Computed example of a mutant assay.
Amino acid sequence: MTDRRFLFVLGSARRDGNTEQLARIAAEQLGDVEQRWLWLGDVPLEEYRDVRWPVSERPDPKGNEKLLLDATLEATDIVIASPTYWYSVSSSTKRYLDHWSNWERVPGFLDTMAGKKLWVVTALAEEHHQADALLDALRRAADWTKMSWGGGLVGIGNRPGDVLSDTTALTRAKTFFAA
């Protein structure tokens, strides 16, 4: 597993929230596998504008968009770590994923994405099934890009640190990336 490179895209509105804590517990099992952690609060993206057409007018990604594009392309495994907000990903995570639509025009983007694996880590205040729509949307994103689907790790936690009491999620985190 040492030739793999994991990109953790942290989409929480706060640092070290339940989702990030659960992702870090799961990542401990990766050992010496390269990991890059990017909190979208540190690398905010411009408001998404659909500039796919005409292709001749597509600007080259710059700044934070270029940083995230490069990190996405360099990774073998992408972990979307977003809390479940209103049955979906956070707004910063959605904006990151929206940019994939423009990046499909970047030469080699879709071919490179096809060789990757997409994973999801999420935490929410309610029952696990409340994350079903989020997981389905990201599984479809994996299908669209021809990525392998690694699966979803769902934890329950309302207040900061609550996920550390979800013994089911903590147990699953120990083997989550083994798939």
Rank of each mutant, 00 (worst) to 15 (best):
L69F: 01
E47I: 09
E28N: 13
R139S: 14
N18Y: 05
R15I: 00
L45Y: 02
T2N: 09
V79F: 04
L164G: 03
A178R: 08
R49K: 13
G63K: 07
A23C: 08
V106Y: 15
A178H: 04
V120A: 11
R95N: 13
L170T: 07
R105G: 15
R24G: 00
R49G: 08
D136A: 15
F176I: 01
L135P: 11
K94D: 01
Y85H: 14
H129M: 14
Q35V: 11
G63L: 05
A27F: 03
A131K: 12
A26K: 06
L110I: 13
P59E: 02
T72Y: 02
K116T: 08
D143G: 12
N64S: 10
W149Q: 04
Y87N: 10
D132C: 12
E104S: 15
V120W: 06
R24L: 06
G108H: 10
W100Q: 01
G150A: 04
K66V: 05
F109W: 08
E46K: 15
Q29N: 07
P59L: 08
W103Q: 03
P61Y: 07
Y48Q: 00
A27K: 04
L110W: 10
P160A: 06
T76V: 08
I80Q: 02
N158F: 10
N102E: 04
K117T: 15
Q29F: 01
A133S: 14
V106I: 15
Q21C: 06
K174A: 13
L40P: 02
L73E: 10
V43F: 12
L170Y: 06
R24M: 07
Y87I: 02
W39V: 05
G17L: 05
K94L: 10
R159T: 08
A173D: 01
W39G: 06
D60L: 14
P107K: 14
W149Y: 02
E65R: 01
